[in-house]
């Protein structure tokens, strides 16, 4: 049984007929070709699939596509607007990524973090990232990146 849903993804209107069980992450990756959003676990731990759903960071592997009906979605592909988002730039400048797999979800979470707490302490940054796992960086340079982005965005 297909269900019709409509959403706005990275500013473009999307209409799809989906199975109820289709996960939002699969809708984005498989149906819409937005493979920047990654799937790294089955248990909502790793955060690689994090996207902005109506402006809030959510794990798209734990949301059904039908639940997102009528929503606005921003994925990593929609973050840059002609130039890199300050968070993307800060990840690059601070070597906040190595293999890059966690990076799209990590960047989206960091954007969300600063949207609610524009000047976080290091401790707040580290706790703010508890929903995103990175196996490469030891988080050291990710923290630096968020601090840099906060400075840029507050500047």
């Amino acid at each position: 049984m297909g269900i019709s849903i409509e959403l706005e993804v990275n500013g473009a209107s999307v209409s799809e007929e989906v199975e109820p069980r289709l996960l939002l992450a699969h809708l984005l990756r498989e149906e819409l070709g937005l493979t920047g959003t990654k799937i790294g676990c089955d248990t909502s731990q790793c955060g690689s699939c994090t996207i902005l759903l109506d402006g809030q960071a959510v794990k798209s592997c734990t949301v059904l596509a039908v639940q997102a009906d009528g929503s606005e979605i921003t994925t990593i592909e929609g973050l840059a607007n002609g130039e890199y988002h300050p968070m993307q730039q800060a990840f690059w400048d601070n070597h906040g990524l190595q293999c890059g797999f966690c990076t799209p979800g990590m960047i989206i979470s960091c954007v969300d973090l600063l949207s609610t707490n524009p000047q976080p302490s290091e401790d707040e940054i580290r706790h703010g990232l508890e929903g995103n796992l990175c196996r490469c960086t030891g988080y050291h340079n990710i923290v630096r990146a968020v601090q840099t982005a906060a400075e840029t965005m507050n500047g």
Partner: peptide, 11 residues
């Protein structure tokens, strides 16, 4: 990094 931070890189 530019491909990785924009989600363009293909795994």
């Amino acid at each position: 990094d530019p491909e990785l931070i924009t989600g363009r890189a293909k795994y």
